[in-house]
Design a protein around this nucleic acid. Structure first.
Lengths: 137, 137
DNA sequence: TTGAAACTGAAACTCGATTTCACTTCGCCG
DNA sequence: CGGCGAAGTGAAATCGAGTTTCAGTTTCAA
């Protein structure tokens, strides 16, 4: 997102980027908006949505849909997937990935794979031990 | 969903099951509702939602969240994943799956994997050939 | 038979996300 | 400079998938 037509690096977009950098893995729009307000108190929710769309189109941001009704966003850093705790809802990045073999299998059926998404659901270390209330990230 | 308390096999739920059987892979609620109406014209959308929740709790149905804002449902048949065409939007079931190794890797980090979701995005055979308008499933 | 629990569906509602619109800012050409 | 058009902003209105409410119906067991 450099200074080229239709893609101005405005203070608002800078604030959203900075919020994403600070927040880390897979945050929802409310969290991103709240964090961006620290740097730019008058930034509106709509602008955050628009900035996220733009950053996604630029390939700098990725969207996640986990089925809780909210879209989560994170910086498109190195390729990774997620471990999702079913009890406390925490997300951990997970680097391992061997889908190349699967992509090859799809290829034999005429399907050309250009991307993929992998999520592993289960219970995080803390939630396997504690039987009390979920820890909440 | 047999005849036990709180889980009656009503005509409505039977209609939703039959709709899911006929429709196959990953349909949204509108499609399921429309199909169920063929068998039971007065069935309401709310009842379809409730039946799907129930069937999901029973493990007979699985939900998919692909990020288009609508939840898709399909019968929980044999374990499979999806090939998603980015041009025509068609979903194909995909049986191959070797996440066992990944689950083992997660295990070494203290995370216990109980389920997973895998989606491969790309272009289906038809859409690689035709350059015209998307084929639409 | 009868009463409680389960079930249904229309209507109202919730809430994340999008659209609209009046306004401001930026880039650029004269 | 001056000023015009494109891009950007944000409050308010709107959209729409999904949920809740509630009055009425069905089922089942005692």
């Amino acid at each position: 997102m450099q200074n080229r037509p239709n893609r101005r690096l405005t203070p608002q977009r800078r604030a959203v980027m900075r919020a994403l950098e600070e927040l880390g893995c897979a945050q929802d729009v409310d969290a991103i908006h709240a964090r961006a307000r620290r740097f730019l108190p008058r930034i509106g929710r709509v602008t955050v949505y628009r900035a996220l769309d733009l950053l996604q189109a630029e390939g700098l941001v990725e969207a996640l849909h986990l089925g809780d009704g909210r879209t989560r966003y994170e910086l498109a850093r190195t390729h990774h997937h997620h471990l999702i705790c079913l009890r406390c809802g925490r997300l951990e990045p997970f680097e391992e990935c061997n889908v190349a073999a699967l992509a090859r299998a799809a290829r034999t059926r005429g399907f050309r794979v250009t991307g993929h998404r992998l999520e592993l659901m289960g219970y995080c270390a803390r939630c396997q031990i504690r039987k009390g209330p979920p820890c909440e990230a």
